[in-house]
């Protein structure tokens, strides 16, 4: 899953620490989210989207491969 967190954060001239403080999470979580190493829960995704004033789909972008994999897993 790709995210636009880094792009949106930089557009607001915020540091990772600022965003982490605003969302009450650790800075390492922000780093992992930006790098795509960690997928946020629905609650955190909602919080992030709400913070940027956007919808979840506008911040988190599902890649086709991921959804196909999940469909295949459900089918098998």
């Amino acid at each position: 899953m790709k995210t636009r967190i880094q792009e949106l954060r930089k557009a607001r001239q915020m540091t990772q620490a600022d965003l982490a403080e605003a969302l009450a999470v650790t800075r390492q979580t922000i780093i992992s989210l930006e790098k795509g190493k960690y997928n946020a829960s629905l609650f955190l995704a909602y919080d992030i989207a709400h913070f940027f004033g956007l919808s979840i789909e506008e911040v988190f972008i599902f890649e086709n491969g991921e959804t196909d994999d999940k469909k295949n897993t459900h089918q098998s």
Binding site: A20, A24, V25, T26, Q28, T29, S32, Y38, F43
Partner: peptide
């Protein structure tokens, strides 16, 4: 508190 409530942690 932030560390303990962080979902990734």
């Amino acid at each position: 508190k932030v560390i303990e409530s962080d979902e990734r942690t």
